[in-house]
Design a protein around this nucleic acid. Structure first.
Lengths: 340, 340
DNA sequence: GATGTCTTTCGAAGCGCTTCGAAAGTGGGG
DNA sequence: CCCCACTTTCGAAGCGCTTCGAAAGACATC
């Protein structure tokens, strides 16, 4: 491996000149800079990562902590880890993956050894132990997700409550007033995974505000049919459905409704909200208010990079505004084919 | 952050003594070692990662390259990345995640800057560009998966051909002779993702060896029904089915067979082989010859650690023997309920 | 008492880079 | 022709650790 020494010799300059030519942190005569760059290219020079880290006191590494719960959706997990990694590369950071039991211990370790310049926390529970940890260690940290107590933290997430409100409003505009929510399994809620709670709360609150009775179902894995049955029991005139649930359940909802003699979107209009999966390939593609991993991760990493690079003091919570994607699963009540 | 200097002062010894006390690379008087350890603990000392890397010329970091193809199964992807990470921790390595377009460029970068001590390559195609890259860069690399040309590489994977043979043999033992294979989408095959090819080849070869006609279906995403129809067309007496396919297709196979008037396992016995997902929650749980991510990743990381630490010269390919999990989806042909 | 052998600890070099301060070179104004 | 300001480049310190060689001390042997 070529070192900065080799480049200096090749270009006939000192190593500090090489360093400045490559970093651009001081001005050099254009001709010198080019000679250095040419020499570096000729030798295939890449700076030694640890030497650079040590001297500059910056690792250009972000740690990503992604613990594993029994109900963790591996697919969503990976998407977030990947999106963080992609966003990080745009700021010239690499990402260290901390999983499993190592999510907390690794966070302490990578901060304590100065291995990581910053930390991105994924899959945040309401009472996540990593919240206190983040306060204790002196390492810039951004949460994707919002724990119960955000004091002293920096958190980024989709505004799930707004997403729930938007979903209800979209159904109201379509003349739907008997609206149900298919939420996540109770096990997930019990663990206080934060976003299903925030979504449900936003849903229930807004329903009350606009004067709706709005039942909520919490189907177990793959139990779409039972969820639909439960909602129809509570609300026989169900004409609007909000899905904040797993891909498995969502993909079976249309079939379940059909089995109960309801058409989609005529009898029941459906919106998937706060979900990471796409409904584009479903029998009936649903209007979606996505939890856009790319957007959340970009926002989080951008923030983190600013904190690390510029000492930016970020607000405790940054809520990303929801966006609405129309796919045709919401139609106005008067146009219901079944009423013909 | 406390440095080794602080520990040395606290313990009243030189920094080299601290280093040896912590690394154990030279013998010290027991009392001295304990004094040093106590001082280190009291100060909450953690060695500065980059300083250690620079001095020891070892980063204790493994890079994991996981590119993204359109048909990539995120879930399986994450499981592998996580299992590599877990296995790496057992050898005191952290893992750097390289995704997307960065899979190749990042491999070059992390090797060229000495950021990583070794590389684990995931999701290997038959003609993967990372194979040549691995030969070019001087960095220990292990492939999980087997490219077409393994010259000069180190590859670890489930013995898919053996898994296919075992699946056929298990069905033969159960008196089944009209056996079909549900394989992956043609798009996946075309990309030459290696394991579906190796499985299919093992299947076709062994079927020929034992004198079976054995049709193969390549359903697109979610098209289990069509695959079953195609196989029944080719083989109306189908009584054995091997699944080396996606979780979505596998989970719908039983329903598709039932729609064609076939019971499982009576009329058609089914084995899922070379798959990462569990069939435990399926309507009929299938006998499985799993592609065990944990086993593959452990084997790969163990190998890589030995190569890095001891200069071990590993064989080009290490095929892991398949294991058979019985779940009741294979019964002997004479016991078919439908023949009653 | 000198020599050799162990054990235990220390000092210092060096890993490859960044960065500060200063030296060397250049040119305009007095 | 000297001085000053500016540009351009260099030298050296230092980041925190590992590791080699050697010093210092203890003890047995001749």
């Amino acid at each position: 491996m070529a070192t900065i020494q080799d480049v200096a010799r090749e270009a006939g300059v000192s190593i500090s000149t090489v360093s400045y030519a490559l970093s651009g942190k001081r001005s050099l005569k254009a001709e010198t800079r080019e000679r250095v760059l040419a020499a570096a290219a000729a030798l295939g020079y890449l700076p030694h990562a640890s030497a650079r880290m040590l001297a500059a006191n910056r690792s250009h590494i972000l740690a990503v902590t992604a613990p594993l719960h029994p109900d963790t959706d591996h697919s969503a997990h990976m998407v977030f880890a990947m999106e963080v990694t992609k966003a990080a590369r745009l700021h010239d950071y690499d990402t260290l993956l901390l999983v499993d039991t190592d999510a907390s211990e690794g966070m302490r370790r990578s901060a304590g050894t100065a291995l990581a310049d910053g930390i991105v926390v994924l899959d945040v529970d309401a009472h996540d132990e990593r919240a206190q940890l983040a306060r204790d260690i002196a390492c810039p940290t951004v949460f994707i997700g919002i724990p119960a107590d955000t004091t002293g933290l920096v958190c980024v997430d989709l505004d799930f409550a707004a997403a729930a409100r938007d979903a209800i409003d979209a159904l109201l505009v379509a003349g739907r007033r008997n609206i149900g929510l298919v939420s996540h399994p109770l096990e997930t809620m019990r663990r206080e995974s934060n976003f299903p709670l925030r979504f449900r709360e936003g849903f229930v609150d807004h329903a009350r505000e606009v004067g709706l009775e709005a039942p909520v179902a919490h189907p177990e894995f793959h139990r779409a049919h039972e969820a639909v049955a439960a909602l129809l029991e509570a609300q026989p005139d169900l004409d609007g459905l909000v899905l904040n649930t797993t891909a498995e359940v969502a993909s079976s909802v249309t079939a379940a409704l059909v089995e109960h003699g309801r058409t989609v979107p005529g009898d029941v209009s459906v919106i998937a909200a706060g979900v990471t999966f796409s409904t584009a390939r479903f029998t009936v593609p649903f209007d979606t208010i996505p939890l856009d991993a790319s957007a959340s991760c970009s926002a989080a990493v951008d923030l983190l990079a600013r904190i690390i690079d510029d000492g930016f003091v970020a607000p405790e919570t940054t809520l990303l505004p929801p966006t609405y994607i129309t796919r045709g699963s919401v139609v106005h009540a008067t146009t219901r084919p079944s009423e013909v």
